[in-house]
Amino acid sequence: MTSKEPFETVVAVHGATVLRVCRAVLGPGDVDDAWSETFLSAMRAYPDLPADANVEAWLVTIAHRKAIDVVRAAGRRAIPTEQIPDTAATPALDGPDPGLVEAVTRLPAKQRHAVVYHYVAGLPHVEVAAILGGSTDAARRAAADGIATLRRTYPPITARKGENR
């Protein structure tokens, strides 16, 4: 394959994934800017992208940088916390769960990125490592640590009564 698809196809195929990634990494707010900056920047560079490149990993890489820019521009940092809120909704057993979304935004940055790029975007750990810098093992560990943190911080303690772990 020597030719590239129209960029419209790239947006159609990967737009939803990039939006999920932006929402997961940034939490509410700033998501539109991060998505728009990601695709604008990607479109600028698209003619030079090698034809055999992994387009989704490439887009998530750009989204990762744009999300960091957006956070910096907003003059704030995501503050990791070990605190477990004592009043939180009972988690839904299926479908979207605002409590889980919120718990993800409270993960330390590296865990959050590794969890989102692997479990939300579906990238293999080796691609996540390329985005975050560092080894594949480090990316795998960060994702596992993130899941472990989520197990501690989500769902709230009241909902875990009777569980044996």
Binding site: L19, R20, R23, A24, P91, L93, D94, G95, P96, D97, L100, V101, V104, V115, Y119, V120, G122, I147, L150, R151, P155, E163, R165
Partner: peptide, 15 residues
């Protein structure tokens, strides 16, 4: 438990 299935819940958390 929801904990055993966190990856699936993560994949569904962003409709």
């Amino acid at each position: 438990s929801i904990h055993d299935d966190l990856p699936r819940h993560l994949a569904q958390a962003y409709p």
